[in-house]
């Protein structure tokens, strides 16, 4: 919700300034570079203007809002730039280079997805793909948001004329990713194909979610009952006036652990 609040703030300021609107991107072909394009199967919304650290050559489309589905379109990212703009010298971002090996290219995409706010990003199911006439890399992703919402993704990227072109789709694994998969699959493989093994997808999602359960060792004690004033005490703070009495120390016989002695050393009174 914290990110949402920041986003709301940005949007409020932009909207009120009257200089930003979200345009429709109609169904049909979208060029990524001279020879490569993808074909949108339905209308999308251009949310690029409201995404932080915007980079030229990177567009972001959505249908239900960036928290629910996000399609990154990379339209010729040159060597030396990242998918997001660097905001401070000592806060570097992942950088694309035309001589990245295929493994490094996958790593660049995974690192970039981390840089835009996802965690525990992993890639899988690496396979060859095609963008128009060029060989491309196709792979799947999964990660989590900072609050622990499981997110799935799929990407197809290629290096054409020393520049990066590609598409990355990210959405919560619960409903939103499988709902768009048939359309995304058609868009990336250039032909009407079936969604890749929806049952297998669901199984691996449920397994991930089950594994992330909090172990019993982290069992939380019930919240501190504070309402009972008689049994509580104000946490001792430095007294503001010189004349105020020192907080009375608890009776020594009830204390265990490190007890401060008069000479400034600590004495360990064992707890039973």
């Amino acid at each position: 919700m914290k990110r949402a609040r920041a986003l709301i703030a940005t949007l409020a300021m932009l909207g009120l300034a009257g200089c930003v609107s979200i345009n429709r991107v109609p169904a049909g072909p979208v060029a990524l570079s001279k020879g490569q394009s993808i074909t949108l199967q339905s209308d999308w919304a251009e949310v690029t203007p409201v995404m932080p650290q915007r980079q030229n050559a990177v567009r972001v489309l959505s249908i239900d809002g960036p928290a629910l589905n996000r399609l990154y379109l990379i339209q010729g990212l040159p060597s030396g730039q990242g998918m997001v703009k660097r905001i401070a010298k000592e806060k570097p971002v992942p950088v694309f280079r035309a001589d990245l090996s295929p493994t490094e290219l996958v790593e660049f995409i995974a690192d970039s997805v981390t840089a835009v706010g996802f965690q525990r990003v992993e890639t899988s199911n690496l396979r060859p793909g095609r963008f128009g006439g060029a060989d491309a890399l196709r792979f799947d992703l999964n990660g989590v948001t900072a609050t622990g919402l499981d997110v799935s993704g799929t990407a197809q990227v290629a290096i054409v004329d020393q520049k990066l072109v590609g598409a990355i789709f990210l959405a919560p694994s619960e409903h939103y990713f499988p709902a768009m998969m048939p359309e995304i699959e058609t868009m990336l493989s250039g032909q009407a194909t079936q969604a890749a093994q929806p049952a297998a997808y669901q199984a691996s999602y449920e397994e991930r979610v089950a594994k992330s359960a909090i172990p019993p060792s982290h069992a939380l004690a019930p919240p501190a009952p504070m309402a009972d004033v008689a049994n509580s005490s104000t946490i001792p703070l430095p007294t503001k006036s010189v004349a105020a009495a020192r907080q009375p120390a608890p009776a020594p016989s009830q204390r265990c652990g490190f007890v401060e002695q008069a000479n400034g050393t600590l004495k360990l009174v064992p707890c039973i």
């Binding site: 501190a224 004033v229 006036s241 490190f258």
Partner: peptide
Amino acid sequence: LLNATGAAAQPAFRPANLKPNISSAEA
């Protein structure tokens, strides 16, 4: 008050299993 704070008395270590008074700022 600000001038007097400098000479404040040192607090003891907090007791174990402390719970603050619910209507306090600490709460």
